[in-house]
Design a protein around this nucleic acid. Sequence first.
DNA 1: CGATACAGTGAACGCTGTTCACAGTCAATG
DNA 2: CATTGACTGTGAACAGCGTTCACTGTATCG
Lengths: 252, 252
Amino acid sequence: MVQRRPAADEDAGSRPLWFIPPASAAHRRRALTREDVVSEALAIIGADGVDALSMRTLATRLGVVPGALYRHVRNKEQLHDLVLDGVLAEVDHEVDDRLAWTQRVKVLAHRLRTVLEAHPGIAGLLKTRDPLGPHSLALAEAFLAALHASGLPGRETGLAFCLVFDYTVGFALSDPTSVNEQRVQNPATRNKLHAFLRSLPADRFPTLVALGKHVWLNNRDERFAAGLDVLIGGLDRPRRPPRRAGGRQPQR
Amino acid sequence: MVQRRPAADEDAGSRPLWFIPPASAAHRRRALTREDVVSEALAIIGADGVDALSMRTLATRLGVVPGALYRHVRNKEQLHDLVLDGVLAEVDHEVDDRLAWTQRVKVLAHRLRTVLEAHPGIAGLLKTRDPLGPHSLALAEAFLAALHASGLPGRETGLAFCLVFDYTVGFALSDPTSVNEQRVQNPATRNKLHAFLRSLPADRFPTLVALGKHVWLNNRDERFAAGLDVLIGGLDRPRRPPRRAGGRQPQR
DNA sequence: CGATACAGTGAACGCTGTTCACAGTCAATG
DNA sequence: CATTGACTGTGAACAGCGTTCACTGTATCG
């Protein structure tokens, strides 16, 4: 929280004891910049998640009236864009070139997930707003470069990028603070959930009764890693010969 | 929209001409049921998306004051749960058992995506609310049964289920009405986007400059099908021998 | 010194989800 | 049949949200 405005009583008669800073142009004018707004927004999100970010609380923490923010940011959506790029800047996109491409992709995906989950709610922005900020582009470049090293043709590389990126974002999106995850994290509610699954009519839900306990588990880390393995394993598979013409879409 | 309340002037002196229905219990009392609320909510979402669903508009369309809804639904979150199950009921979960398990999973995933995208915004609910309603369970059963037919052990089947389900939901979540998709759908803006990518400094973003045009494409259908292929291909791969102990997570 | 640009103010608008005392009507009871 | 009790819908309110707008005061430029 930035203290921007001199205390009221400082103007009102009580003289400063020794030295009053000249209130240089840099401090009084242009005191609030777009960077300030964005960084304070990041602070709020880092502390309380993206839902806690409202124009009003943001303005209050900056010592400013809500409407003032609109001098620096067109609307909340644009603020989200800026915040998003700020978060993605935290993802280290340097990877050892000597690693196998599969390892490089995995490392990047893990880093992305870590950063996204450190800022609850941010992943949601990625689903509606394309990240075209400088840091986001650097990250995309790193992913693309690693995938390109697989030797896949350009078009397939693009598809693979979408796949891996969407997988990671989608995974981070069901963040551990959501209701679902809370439910499986708490052993008591998890047991209740398993009991519920076991209690289902076995004639209508045989597999669910038998395997339900393997689905609702508190195993986010394992789930992410295993999914990533499957995914990259699938990419690493020798391409099959072009499937029978027009057979792209399985019959509905 | 249900007309539930007699017109005001009907009570106020103007006598009915011939016959006044007895306002039977079924009509006056219990006129509004939870099913009514949910089905009207589904209608709103089907027409204008999930964002258009507010307690006030829902109440208005039901000819009722907003607070009245809380006699039938504890809060909006619970309304979402009910709506969600109503939508998932539209997914046909019957699949031909004679198909290969890979085909069965693909068919189910395509159906799920179709239904989710027919109700913009619904996929978002699936990320925060676990679908434990009857229809949702039936769908989960179908997916699990198909995956179980792969011969994977129980735990891996659970992981595979999460993977396929999350993939489909995550994909549907970036629905075609979002900003990103609009951008690549419109040829003009897509060209602008490609031009922007080409204009990037080639020394810092070499792969992005070269392959960017393969990433931002209007190819949702191909993307979904290809991703699903990779994913199921990865699942279908012969399991490798248990990886070196503790080596689940690639080194950061 | 006067003119101009502009950050910040304060108030308002219209929207949201939710609560609460109250009124009216039905069904069951004495 | 009359009374009671349960319960649905009313109307108003509360607190919060994003956003707009006329206005004020200050800092900079000509």
